[in-house]
């Protein structure tokens, strides 16, 4: 496992060096969403019997961990492969490429988890509505892993940085708006909501709110996320062994 340690050590060194830029950068968009939708719009809106602010905080955590995990792993792999060529130094080294995939995905997920932590600290200043349960933590972490694994796979697959941002525009951004971040999925036309129920972020957002759900439903969300993670991880690790 010294391969895994090596990759995480490398990521930790870079994280420490960019600590403030990462920390401040991670806080900008959640703060904007909280201001715009929580205070601005939210003052006059009630959602499912609670204040809109209380409603969107878990959604913002779901959305933001998705974005941060995906983009950190995705662009890190993509740039390292196409631009800095550091990816090659790992291909040459005796590290098993599955371990490499695991290391990079964990690192990206930790960036996502860190951003979630920042949001939690941020909102705890002016609301006590957010209940952090072990289930909440589990779902948030799974969400980070799913989208970090997706970033890894897409970063390997796509052969230019602009295609990377196209994927973000066509897949990641639509998910952030449609998967129950800002409003419940059942407000959507029925056919559309079926499709949306297949997407991982939908399950994350519902699970993070977990209001009035049965244990079976709660388990289903976890199951969907785990399944997504396994499929994306296997795809990424497999592709890693054959990529040029």
């Amino acid at each position: 496992m010294s391969g895994l340690y090596g990759i995480l050590w490398q990521e930790a060194v870079v994280f420490r060096r960019k600590f403030w830029a990462t920390t401040l950068g991670n806080m900008v968009s959640p703060i904007l969403y909280l201001i715009a939708f929580g205070w601005g719009l939210g003052g006059s809106v009630q959602m499912n019997g609670m204040s809109y602010m209380a409603y969107i905080i878990p959604g913002i955590i779901g959305m933001n961990t998705m974005m941060i995990s995906f983009s950190n792993t995705g662009s890190s792999i993509n740039i390292s492969r196409l631009f800095y060529k550091t990816f090659e130094s790992y291909m040459i080294s005796p590290i098993n490429m599955t371990v490499y995939a695991l290391g990079k995905i964990i690192a990206g997920a930790l960036y996502g988890a860190y951003s979630a932590l920042l949001i939690i600290i941020l909102v705890s200043v002016f609301t006590t509505d957010l209940a952090i349960t072990p289930y909440f933590v589990l779902v948030a972490l799974l969400n980070c892993l799913v989208f970090s694994a997706m970033g890894f796979f897409v970063g390997l697959l796509v052969n230019s940085h602009s295609d990377m941002s196209k994927f973000t525009s066509f897949v990641i951004t639509p998910m952030s708006f449609l998967c129950g971040t800002f409003f419940p999925v059942d407000k959507m036309p029925e056919v559309l909501s079926w499709i949306i129920y297949l997407l991982p972020l939908t399950h994350t957002n519902i699970a993070l709110r977990s209001a009035g759900e049965s244990p079976e439903q709660m388990a289903l969300h976890v199951g969907v996320l785990v399944a997504y993670f396994i499929v994306l991880f296997v795809l990424g690790a497999h592709h890693c062994k054959n990529v040029e």
Partner: peptide, 26 residues
């Protein structure tokens, strides 16, 4: 291997680049 194109970790020092390599090579 010393490739034609630079593939160092740019955001790390020389020592750190070597340290990571050493860890990866057990």
């Amino acid at each position: 291997v010393v490739p034609q194109q630079n593939n160092l970790e740019n955001e790390m020092s020389a020592w750190e680049n070597l340290e990571v390599h050493g860890i990866l090579y057990h």
